[in-house]
Nucleic acid binder design. Sequence first.
DNA 1: TTGTACGCGTTATCAG
DNA 2: CTGATAACGCGTACAA
Lengths: 353, 353
Amino acid sequence: MAAEAPPIQRRKARRNAAAVSGKVTLQQVAAAAGVSSATVSRILNGTAIVSDDKRAAVFEAIEQLGYVPNPVARGLAGGRTLSIGVVTQAIDSPFYSGALRGIEDTLSAAGYSPLFVSGQWNATHEARCIETLRSRRVDGIIVLTGRLSNAALAATARELPVVVTGRKLKASGLFALDFDNFEGARLATHHLLALGHRRIAFISGDLKHLDGSERLRGYRSALAAAGVRLEPVMELPGDFTEASGLAAVERLIDSREPFTALFAANDQMAFGAALALHRRRMRVPDDVSLVGFDDLAGSVYSVPPLTTVHHPVYELGQLAAESMLQLLAGEKPALELPPPRLVVRETTRQLRT
Amino acid sequence: MAAEAPPIQRRKARRNAAAVSGKVTLQQVAAAAGVSSATVSRILNGTAIVSDDKRAAVFEAIEQLGYVPNPVARGLAGGRTLSIGVVTQAIDSPFYSGALRGIEDTLSAAGYSPLFVSGQWNATHEARCIETLRSRRVDGIIVLTGRLSNAALAATARELPVVVTGRKLKASGLFALDFDNFEGARLATHHLLALGHRRIAFISGDLKHLDGSERLRGYRSALAAAGVRLEPVMELPGDFTEASGLAAVERLIDSREPFTALFAANDQMAFGAALALHRRRMRVPDDVSLVGFDDLAGSVYSVPPLTTVHHPVYELGQLAAESMLQLLAGEKPALELPPPRLVVRETTRQLRT
DNA sequence: TTGTACGCGTTATCAG
DNA sequence: CTGATAACGCGTACAA
């Protein structure tokens, strides 16, 4: 036993050094295991059946040497980089960052790495982002609510798998994951109607996006179903930012148009609206009821906590990533997001009569 | 002229096809330009001086063919992947996402791509993340407030450039970008003292992190300087989350210890604190003054807008990325974050006497 | 089942 | 200044 000590120590030392420097090659593993490099590769990728003894020898060698495959070389040789491009609009938006985490969690669990790029709400920039991702040879691209045209998306889907959220679209090699924004907005508006409100103003998001237009449609639909007349003055334009929500409410108040409730197309605008109401000395929910959309992490802790429509952003990211994995595996994804759900907190109350 | 039309068209067509498929190789460019591939490489990387005519011919060919270099092959051959690993704790945290944007902006402007991974406040997981990044052959690693030991960080800095934020540390190949949390906390506490407050409670963050402990130190220092006795009961433990801020304030109120002001070690805990006060029917700032730390994007729109210490997170990301670029260029970074700055908004007021 | 040999697209090292 | 040519580390036809 004692005689064997030195070799063992040496092996251990080498292993640590290797694990840190990451410089052990597949070739070295093959040599140590007494097989060809092709066999090692086959074992690693499950490309072919290998005899059990060689298999064991290879794993032994991998363990001893602390071998870690080099994804760069893999990418060059095999064409697969095990990385997925993710096009987001603003990486620091409270809305998207939740989705990004969902994507990262499920992608990394599958051995893939996400490559995030920000499109910055600009179609041209977005196209450039996709070019960058393609030049980096990503295996697929996930687009979170892009500005890119459906045609452009379908075109890149012909080259590599694409998963897109926030729009409806069918094309080969592409999967669209959509959330029922219409129903969510209907739910929110219905809630206010059920509380007795009739003068319900709506702060819309960017109508160029499906999210924005669908939420407006849901609002209108609910009002119509309740027999409440649609009034253009009650539809305030916004762009999904807090500032636009604040501005919209100030304009509404200045117009002296009576209203008892406010539905903002997203939580951020609802926050802006709440501040505007506060500035004008109108209390929430005593004077005005307020509903948001998205259920951001911070909405639970706003004062008072915001009633809103839950949008499962984390799950959105997870499902987008899972769909991509399925696309990569040659399967046809059919995942669906859970239906929207109203979360009643403390910014809404029965209309005083 | 007319005779030349066909070739031009053909060239155009080929160029488009190439730009989309991204399959034109450096070899093809070399062939088209009538030079060797080495020359093309040299021109692209500025590795050596090349005659003007060949240079022009190569650029002409690149343009015609729509050549885009392949970073994967580059990574294999040259060892540089033009990608930087970024270890963050929670990609969806409002605090870190701002920094991530700063990093992405300046990195991509320099032709680098960031590779984000989440350490999830877990040293073991963080170490694994770094292994992943190294296996992907990133050219450097930026660590945002990690849990990793200084020793571990210094060790990886021996292998490749490292930039770390949120701690003080000197080592070769490593640059630490620190923010003056002590001074920021001192500023905030001083502000409350200047308003006449004496019973100022402090909700601390995770004291295992330098951010947390330094802010506590700043709070104590300001009190001491004003001759106010430090009372352990006024120092409430927290962990940087909204929930912990809420719990801390509820405990404080239940203890019936009198207090007129509250300083939370970050904005998220301040939000939690504000909600707790609201629940207990204590008004901000009329009954209690409240100060946060970080100046998150949402703090401007909280109701009422939060007085807080501005922490330049976006710049933090920018500077971290710039430092990394300098490290990569063989320079010695000496960038510094701007000093902390108190942003007085509407949650603090003169103590009523 | 296994090994040989070539190719992936660049960079780097030599000569010239 | 420029051109062959050898790496870089791995996947994969092809052959055995």
